[in-house]
Write a protein that binds this DNA or RNA. Sequence first.
DNA 1: TTTCCGATGTATCGCGGCGATACAACGCTC
DNA 2: GAGCGTTGTATCGCCGCGATACATCGGAAA
Lengths: 197, 197
Amino acid sequence: MAKTDVLSLAILGMLAEQPLHGYQIRKRLSGELGPFRALSYGSLYPCLKRMVASGYIAADDSNSTDVTRPGGSKRSRIAYQLTDAGTDRLARELASSGASSWDDEAFDVRFSLFGKTDSETRLRILEGRRTRLAERLEDVAEGLARQRDRLDAYTAELQRHGLERVEREVEWLDKLIEDERSATRGTDHHTASAGDK
Amino acid sequence: MAKTDVLSLAILGMLAEQPLHGYQIRKRLSGELGPFRALSYGSLYPCLKRMVASGYIAADDSNSTDVTRPGGSKRSRIAYQLTDAGTDRLARELASSGASSWDDEAFDVRFSLFGKTDSETRLRILEGRRTRLAERLEDVAEGLARQRDRLDAYTAELQRHGLERVEREVEWLDKLIEDERSATRGTDHHTASAGDK
DNA sequence: TTTCCGATGTATCGCGGCGATACAACGCTC
DNA sequence: GAGCGTTGTATCGCCGCGATACATCGGAAA
């Protein structure tokens, strides 16, 4: 079932625009999602290797000659590009909106690829994420109530702040969902106003 | 130098209150810091092993008619408790406030142990964390300005939201710092009002 | 001019975290 | 008396990360 590996999805999406080297991929990814979430070479290169082995991307090292003998070797740089299988995989991944898209790490990547998806999928992911966070909110609140007397002031404050952060996240999602809905209503020709579920 | 390993610090702090089994440790830790940050057995037990090997904690598996359980429970359960070396280590760790305390993962643990530290250390950690986040803020803003035209709407929104989240975090820290300062002024006998920077 | 520095670029190693999983005995209800 | 959720210990494989190594290039300082 190929457990969808968030990192490879991000790379797939990035290579859909244009071929890139590992170094460039890291740069862009760190710039888009991070520095909230950094990406190290220790994950990048093994992941690229895996993807090549799986046939989703192809390594184009057209300009590298003999490496062992530094006689006339140009700088070795490897451009990666999507194969047909990779394009296919990306399309399938983008159309899906399973529970793995609600995760903390996965959601950001999915969201950054919203431009390549349709409005329906966007809404499903947004709502799934919202539900996930709401569940977490309940769990925390419940657990907090059960042991609120054993906690010292600082731990309690930490809890409170964490809770607030999740609440803010939910508000953000609500806004996005609202925007997405009104945008759909605006551009959708035949639906007009009837099925406003 | 013993790279301070956040998890073991958390365990050290937890065992300072009372001896606990692995299962209880997990429960409490997940309840205090998490479910924001969960803790799996795959990290817990190896970590406990390491700490025993290092001599910071001792495993007490004398399992018959013990403190909490009425009746002779023969179930295999291992209570861990601090050794003298462990108490020492915790004290040293708590007094320190090095750069490793500003990290995302480390800060929460340090903060939850604020009750065991003095006001000076608290302030140093709070301010260090604040500085760290402010730096991050600048980095992101700069990187965002450099490539703001290449980003599609969704990625840009993700950036904006991430930035906002960090800003909120800074505001939270400012409040805490302010509280800490006024509390110090309140209880500190000889300082009075002079150096109110 | 040479020298040195920082950016570009690929790659690996060890450590440790995580999810899944297994096993086992207990207490609880039906 | 069988099932089931909780308490409890433990390991395995995968993979992410930080550190590190190595190589080439452009440009600024010496």
